[in-house]
Amino acid sequence: MITREPVYTDEPDNALTGIWRSVVLGVGDIGRAGSLTVQALAGIPALFAAGRRRHEWARQMFLMGIKTLPVISVVGMFTGMILGLQVGLELRRFNQEIYIGSAVMVSLLREMGPFMTGLILAACVGSSMAAQIGTMTVNDEIAALEIMSISPVRFLMAPRMAAMVVMTPVLSFYTCVLGVIGGGIVGVTQLNVPLDQYISMAMDFARMRDLYVGLLKALVFGVVITGVSCYEGFTTTQGAVGVGQATRRSVITSFLLILVLGYIITRLFYDL
């Protein structure tokens, strides 16, 4: 059973047993969420074998794009503008403003692009995933699927996972492009860097490796957001209140994991 029966245990006698119990429950959660994620990823090939589910995949991608495009455009643009301004002000002290293009490009590709995209997808898409699946859980809809021997993981989670795996790198790339444009606007209008110099500096420093690592990060974020949000949804208990809690927890957990995993991936790919 994918849905969870509420866990009731005796009140802990002291703080230590309380902490120990949270650790045990937490490790169990990580294990189950991880196994769901793996199952969902394993279910993706079957999605493309059966024509009908492919439709669901396309629909999910469309929804994700629609939900995030406006906000991601603004965020991408302003991330680039802020980067350009901050870096540009520092560089100007050394009369090196021409390097603003490379600074903006590199930090966007490696870190800020995927990071910002991850946060926005967790907030916009992950939360509504958790809320939708959580509502289905408390309304017995997940149970109904299980009775019909239709695996909720394959039926609900795999199409979302497949959509997210495609959309996070695409949107991350889009954020980077808009960010570079934003940085350029600041550079040219505020810091008087010639446009052609901005572009050539940006392109000189854009290494394929940075792009790949950034896209890989985005992809990992997408998997994590889907895994966390669906797990929270499936394990919702206690009606409407529970749906609210599941949504909140899914966003917080995704944020934390995005930060931690972002660091780990950077550390893995770049030697000190």
Binding site: M136, N139, D140, E141, A143, A144, E146, I147, M148, S149
Partner: peptide, 19 residues
């Protein structure tokens, strides 16, 4: 479990239709 469940139909208290 699937084989046993296939023998059942279940009407849930709230209907439990997919929205």
């Amino acid at each position: 479990l699937d084989r046993v469940r296939e023998r059942f139909g279940y009407l849930f208290q709230g209907g439990a239709l997919l929205g």
